[in-house]
């Protein structure tokens, strides 16, 4: 054999061997989902029941080791005040970690704002968390395969693999992702995967005294959340982004962004 031929065939063999067999397979996600149809986690928020106590935020931070003083949180509660003249004023002091304990609305750099009682047409609270979308934008943009969706629908981050580039934080239309100040990776709500996969409740739903938050299996017709989706008028946030979110809201109105 000539040296030239030897090198040629070596290059071909090495290149061929480096492509793993699985890379040549075409996998249809729908086919795989149909093979495992019994579980799909979803979340239901009843905005009428939420009183803005923020116990969910506190419980989430403790349960998931999110630094309490850092201005990051996996879930938060927003207060909306809609005035009689149609103006919408929103605030969310420290992610509602300490609840809403004043009538003053925290408007950031422009200071606090008090809205006179007779000018308030509607006022309510909206808890927010990761929507665990069916087509998550954050997962699509990850360049290293550190964030992914499990078969049962939860979107998770592999902390050992995340390079902290922040694409997913930018890619999420709901702003639920943040940079974890201690782990130095992208972080987000996991639906308390460690709790729900052992048959438990999420920390936020367990801490809510009013039952405003519920997690359930959307594939089980007898599940309370699945039932509510069938029998009640529910909405999702930012439907127009096409991410197909799986956190449903009772009593959502158009002012909520």
């Amino acid at each position: 054999m000539k040296r030239r031929d030897f090198l040629k065939s070596t290059a071909v063999i090495v290149a061929g061997a480096s492509v793993s067999l699985s890379a040549l397979e075409f996998v249809d996600p729908k086919e795989l989902l149909a093979a495992n149809p019994q579980l799909r986690w979803g979340f239901l928020v009843d905005t009428h029941k939420c009183v803005g106590c923020g116990f969910c935020v506190k419980a989430c931070k403790t349960e998931n080791d999110i630094p309490f003083e850092a201005n990051v949180t996996r879930t938060w509660v927003e207060r909306y005040v809609i005035k009689t003249d149609g103006e919408v004023v929103m605030d969310c002091p420290k992610g509602a970690r300490d609840g809403f304990t004043t009538k003053l609305l925290d408007q950031g750099a422009s200071g606090n704002r008090l809205i006179p009682e007779n000018e308030i047409a509607q006022a309510f609270f909206v808890p927010k968390l990761c929507n665990h979308c069916s087509t998550p934008a954050c997962v699509q943009v990850c360049p290293v395969g550190a964030t992914y969706q499990t078969a049962d629908g939860t979107v998770l981050v592999d902390r050992t693999w995340c390079i902290g580039c922040g694409y997913c934080i930018m890619g999420c239309p709901y702003g639920v992702r943040f940079f974890h100040p201690v782990e130095h990776v992208a972080d987000k709500c996991t639906f308390c995967y460690h709790r729900i996969s052992k048959g438990g409740n999420t920390a936020c739903a367990q801490a809510c005294p009013f039952g405003a938050r519920q997690i359930g299996n959307l594939k089980d017709p007898n599940d309370p959340v699945a039932q509510a989706l069938m029998n009640q008028r529910v909405g999702v946030l930012r439907d127009e982004y096409g991410t197909k979110p799986n956190v449903y809201y009772i009593g959502l109105n158009k002012e909520v962004r």
Partner: peptide, 22 residues
């Protein structure tokens, strides 16, 4: 399970999250 677009990851990480201490 979720294909290349949404499911490309290290499989054992799912178990790591399940084992997170409550």
């Amino acid at each position: 399970d979720r294909g290349y677009t949404f499911g490309y990851h290290r499989l054992s990480n799912e178990q790591e999250w399940k084992d997170y201490p409550g």
